[in-house]
Design a protein around this nucleic acid. Structure first.
Lengths: 191, 191
DNA sequence: GTCTATACGTTGATAGAC
DNA sequence: GTCTATCAACGTATAGAC
């Protein structure tokens, strides 16, 4: 099946992804999506039933990308601490925030089960994944799941603080603090 | 000066506070504010020059309240760890999120210097305050400021994860994880 | 101080031509 | 598939009477 390099439907999803990230669901209008995608009203309502339907496609893709990028870090070689450190210190535009986490502040997303679900599933997966890594090497007096939850929270909260301060350094600082606390509690054994 | 028990200006600010918390700046219309305050258009534009002006009053008050409630926990008796634990475990409606932190996701707030400033100042203060407490008792190999930043990030990220999961327990779990990591690094000496 | 009237753009969509 | 009307409601005010 031959299609344009990037077809209209695809451009609509990508534009929505960007706008949801930049402005959230409430702050993103169909008009703005169409303008960015270079598509008309007719195209958008031909490919999608409306704003929620298009948002679902965009949110799902944002969630999938987050998961793929995380898994790339987690499946590297090295100790659990190495892999978690790689993930947390991975290059990020901290001032943009997390494309999935930010949806959590969108009342219309949280109110719509279909839109909220990918957000819930993504963080549940991420926390489980880190907990599984920690379970290998963590100080036995600590709970891997609670520790993993704290680490994911530092990540999300680091974005919040970086945006509040207008400085990406604050994100790095939060991560440094968390890894400093963690270091003493994981064994340095090789996997 | 005699006034009604709660005058119109006051009700407008309180209604805006609530709505900013629930729906954010972009999601809050003057109309909604007026309806909740039981005030007309005329009243709102008499007391405030517009939505940004009213939002500034509401944001400032939210920031002040956050600070007062935090200081109440920090100035209790006990070790640094006691006071920080009291603050982090304080009763909160985790699913509502942080009234100040959530503004960080509001593009129109971040774009307006006057509205962003109280958010920046509040988190800078909170981090400094916790860093000062930690400086007393923290393991000397750890940086009090980075550690404090991580703790504030866990707080903010805990809200994000709780909302994503639709469960306040996740907030508590993130805090448990952070305090577990912290416990081994602070001396238990009495102040 | 508060009210109603008015205004002009945007939001989120539908209808029907091409 | 895409385009151009068209629409009712909403967003964010301003004007002027009371």
């Amino acid at each position: 099946m031959y299609t344009a390099v990037v077809d209209t439907r695809e451009r609509l999803i990508e534009s929505t992804r960007e706008l949801l990230w930049e402005r959230g669901y409430v702050g993103t209008s169909p008009k703005a999506i169409q303008a960015r995608a270079g598509a008309g009203q007719g195209s958008m309502y031909h490919h999608f039933s409306g704003k929620p339907d298009l948002a679902l496609a965009a949110i799902s893709r944002n969630a999938e990308e987050l998961r793929n990028r995380a898994e790339a870090a987690f499946s590297q070689r090295g100790t659990a601490l190495d892999r978690i450190t790689t993930y947390l210190r991975r290059e990020r535009d901290a001032l943009k925030g997390c494309p999935v986490g930010r949806l959590t502040q969108d009342p219309d997303v949280m109110a719509d089960e279909a839109l909220r679900k990918p957000v819930e599933v993504t963080f549940a997966w991420l926390t489980d994944r880190i907990a599984a890594l920690l379970a290998e090497d963590l100080d036995s007096r600590l709970d891997p799941r609670a520790t993993a939850t704290a680490l994911v929270a530092v990540l999300q909260g680091g974005y919040v603080l970086a945006r509040a301060a207008g400085s990406a350094d604050v994100y790095a600082h939060a991560i440094d603090g968390a890894l400093g606390l963690l270091a003493a509690h994981v064994s340095a054994e090789r996997n």
